[in-house]
């Protein structure tokens, strides 16, 4: 519940504050968002597995975001930023899907 409230609070803050993303960070924000979503679903799955641990959740959240951003940054430096971004999104997407499959199995037994 607190997580849902936090999500709503974040959305509201984002709507109210009207922040502008610095130009240097703009390529990394979408990747970071996808990585954070991945961590979020992973945490939800762990919760349903009964093994949720806040420390693991925090570290996985942060490391996911940082590693994803770093990979994209590295790709930009190497001149394959677009391809690496796609790769990161694909990998994270696969993980999200498998996590959602596990969550679904937990919730719907199917």
């Amino acid at each position: 519940m607190i997580a849902v409230i936090g999500l709503a609070i974040g959305v509201v803050i984002g709507l109210l504050v009207h922040p502008t993303v610095p130009a240097e960070l703009q390529p990394y924000l979408p990747i970071a968002v996808v990585a954070a979503l991945d961590a979020l679903f992973g945490g939800l799955r762990a919760l349903l597995d009964g093994i949720f641990d806040d420390r693991v959740f925090l570290t996985s959240f942060l490391s996911n975001v940082l590693v994803a951003a770093f990979i994209v940054f590295l790709g930009d430096q190497l001149g394959v930023g677009t391809q690496l971004s796609t790769a990161v999104v694909v990998v994270l997407g696969i993980r999200i899907f498998s996590n959602v499959a596990a969550i679904r199995r937990h919730l719907f037994k199917a």
């Binding site: 519940m1 607190i2 997580a3 849902v4 409230i5 936090g6 999500l7 709503a8 609070i9 974040g10 959305v11 803050i13 984002g14 709507l15 922040p19 993303v21 924000l29 979408p30 970071a32 968002v33 954070a36 979503l37 961590a39 979020l40 945490g43 949720f52 641990d53 806040d54 959740f57 925090l58 959240f61």
Partner: peptide, 26 residues
């Protein structure tokens, strides 16, 4: 989902807030 002021819940709330913020910004 029951609101409890445990560390895990607060942490998840904060991280979700960050995520929501980032999504909206993006």
């Amino acid at each position: 989902l029951r609101p409890r002021a445990t560390r895990a819940q607060v942490l998840a709330g904060v991280l979700c807030a960050v995520l929501g913020f980032a999504i909206v910004v993006q």
